[in-house]
Design a protein around this nucleic acid. Structure first.
Lengths: 232, 232
DNA sequence: GATTGTTTTCGTCGTAATGACGATAAGCCT
DNA sequence: AGGCTTATCGTCATTACGACGAAAACAATC
């Protein structure tokens, strides 16, 4: 980095959030409704400015807490991609560091200060969003779908203890496919480090009571889960 | 994004580059030597400010051309990650959008304007770099190694036409393993869309002449290449 | 209380993919 | 010619995977 002070130009830096959860067997994204121009009335991804002394991830966590009341212990958060097209915001030069957050379906309503405008929208029926947020959402969905294959990230959509059936539902909803329960059970339990049995059982799904599992310590899934071609 | 003008604070936005190539069977990264404080005398990743009307990728390509003379048609370029710790640059608040570039080993010396200070360093012996560039390089290497598994990206290290043996060397050098030539040949030629035979042969490797291939149209490798545990 | 329905969980079976390795081909060098 | 190198084709045993059958263990209903 050869800094030439004469070349320095100020940019605004923001974080935008793609927050995904599963509600009623549908993949949903958190959106806010814009009140001001540009794109007044449109839905947009939540986000805001990075404060002068704030880390990028800290800013993302702060925005996440403001919109949903979720904290770092509740959600998986990772940086997604940075969007910086010169005209992406007509008012000024804004570079936005998008983050991807995956949260379980909390029974808690969306607490938080300005949560009034925030709402979950199924990704299948989310209209055109403000700014370049359609592209951001598309990239976030792609990342989430890909990461389910080779990481234990699907557990981020589940409560701390969950059944294999609930985990399978996550894969089915996020990928938009239907998976064989028997093969999925075999694969999930055979993948080392993916799941830890608790020894307890639950029958909250109806049917035969299922064993409860916790997330294992594995960072990556070996072998990975195989994603079939879409369409159930 | 609820813009509150009072919260707006100017940031400097830069692009940093992790440019990788393979020279003499070693994975090398492009570095520049810093002349000024901070970190004067240290090596650093090439990079520079994003211009006021410039896209992020355009800025990365411009810096790449300035340092190496390489153009978009020669290299693979993708965004890597954004680094924005408040104190990562002691002079001012700098947010850096790091990019990963993979280039074939061009016989052309590093042309370009200020290429004098730029040089290839084997990643195995690269000392501590300036700023947080050690972390950036680590992330770039991890990304490159992972992408060789499920994308045809290894071809970015090769000339337009290459042999299976040359391609295998890429995998071996980047992953730091040794692969069975027979199994690799079977897998590479069987993966649909990975390689296109040209019909021509070359004996530039010594030994029996090998068929020349071009990169296929596949975006992803199905099934992926399998990375064995390190240590050859 | 027997039946129906649901979900879980354990097996089976044929096919495909994979790793280990033998063998041959086709050039170069001495 | 003989040896060395790399490329390419094949074999074989093991494993992974997709498609199913079947039993287990509950709830709801007749």
């Amino acid at each position: 980095m050869a800094y030439d002070p004469s070349a320095f130009e100020p940019f605004a830096v923001t974080v935008d959030l793609v927050v995904l959860t599963i509600r009623d067997d549908e993949l949903c994204v958190l959106t806010v409704e814009r009140g001001e121009e540009p794109y007044a009335g449109r839905r947009a991804l939540p986000g805001g400015f990075v404060l002068p002394d704030e880390d990028l991830e800290t800013a993302a966590l702060r925005e996440l807490a403001e919109e949903t009341g979720l904290t770092a212990t509740d959600v998986h958060l990772e940086q997604l991609r940075t969007y910086g097209a010169p005209a992406r915001d007509p008012r000024m030069r804004v570079v936005s560091v998008a983050h991807l957050a995956l949260a379980p379906d909390l029974p808690t309503p969306q607490a938080g200060t300005d949560a009034a405008a925030a709402s979950w929208v199924p990704v299948s029926s989310v209209g055109p969003l403000a700014f370049d947020h359609d592209e951001v959402l598309r990239d976030g969905l792609e990342r989430a779908r890909a990461k389910l294959e080779y990481s234990p990230l699907a557990t981020a959509f589940c409560p701390p203890e969950f059944t294999i059936g609930e985990l399978r539902r996550v894969y089915e909803v996020v990928w938009g496919v239907s998976l064989d329960p028997r093969n999925f059970h075999r694969k999930a339990t055979a993948t080392p480090g993916f799941l830890v049995a608790t020894g307890e059982r639950t029958n909250r799904q109806g049917g035969r009571p299922a064993e409860l599992f916790r997330r294992g310590e594995a960072i990556a899934l070996l072998p990975p889960m195989n994603r079939p071609a879409p369409h159930s």
